[in-house]
Simulated assay, not measured.
Amino acid sequence: MSWSKLKQQLEGFLSPALKEKVEYRAQGYRYLADKPGICYIMVDNKNVLNMSDKASFIRWYQTELEIKNDPDIQIPVTHDEIEAVRKASKGTVPEDRLIVIARSRKSSEHAKELLSAQASLSKSNFVVVANQFLSTSIEESIESKDIVLNVLALVDRRMGKKRIVNMSEQMKLKHPIVQYFYELRRNTL
């Protein structure tokens, strides 16, 4: 599918509140017709998500330790996760320490997922992911570990107000760029 057709379809799915804010762009190269060039998403005429640019204002993590030490990342811990730590330690660990251990385990898991998602994003082709988005359901796109699929689903008009509001806990565990688009969408409700 040509870029202009793809762009037209993606913009057709944009939420009405975001039509003037969000824009899909591609820098094509005239002599390289088989290459899609650089694709990116702009918000209010600022390049927010560029597949190959790690210098954007969104935080890109380099190590697991950076993610674990980032005060902006809040890792919610459930009662079941605390109980799993209690069972593994056979009840010998103090209660306050159980929460710390459970949060540490979950943050390690979360950090690995974030780094994996970033690595796949830097290698991904926006055109391929956008075509995948157009052929899958919104539920699959929002549940996916692919950052671009998450972003495209969040700005989609098929995501209702109630669903957006009820996703706040789920969004805490997503990459900062996904959280950025979630807040953008939530603020336009």
Rank of each mutant, 00 (worst) to 15 (best):
M1E: 05
K5C: 06
K5H: 07
L6A: 03
L6R: 14
Q8C: 04
Q8H: 10
Q9T: 10
Q9I: 01
L10R: 01
K19F: 07
E20G: 10
K21W: 11
V22H: 01
A26S: 14
A26D: 11
Q27G: 09
Y29P: 00
Y31V: 02
A33I: 10
K35Q: 14
P36G: 03
I38S: 09
Y40V: 03
I41W: 04
M42S: 14
M42H: 06
V43T: 10
V43A: 04
V43M: 08
D44P: 00
N45C: 12
N50Q: 13
N50W: 08
K54D: 14
A55P: 01
A55F: 11
S56C: 13
F57I: 06
F57Y: 12
Q62W: 06
E64H: 01
E64N: 05
L65F: 04
L65R: 15
I67A: 08
I67S: 06
K68E: 14
P71S: 11
D72K: 01
I73Q: 09
Q74K: 13
I75H: 01
P76D: 02
P76H: 12
D80A: 05
E81K: 03
E81M: 06
V85H: 03
K87F: 11
K87P: 03
S89H: 06
K90F: 07
G91L: 07
T92N: 13
T92Y: 13
R97H: 13
L98F: 11
L98Q: 05
S104H: 12
R105C: 05
R105V: 05
S107T: 15
S108Y: 09
K112V: 11
K112R: 08
S116V: 07
Q118W: 02
A119K: 12
A119I: 01
L121G: 00
V128G: 00
A130L: 07
S137H: 00
I138N: 07
E139S: 05
E140R: 05
E140Y: 03
I142K: 02
S144D: 01
D146Q: 00
D146W: 01
I147A: 02
I147L: 08
N150T: 14
L152R: 03
L152N: 04
L152F: 08
V155L: 07
R157D: 03
R158S: 08
I164S: 09
V165Y: 02
V165M: 04
N166V: 02
M167C: 09
M167S: 14
S168D: 08
S168R: 08
Q170Y: 09
L173N: 09
K174E: 09
I177W: 08
F181D: 10
F181W: 06
F181E: 15
L184F: 04
L184C: 07
L184A: 05
L184Y: 01
R186S: 08
R186G: 07
R186E: 15
N187F: 09
N187P: 02
L189W: 12
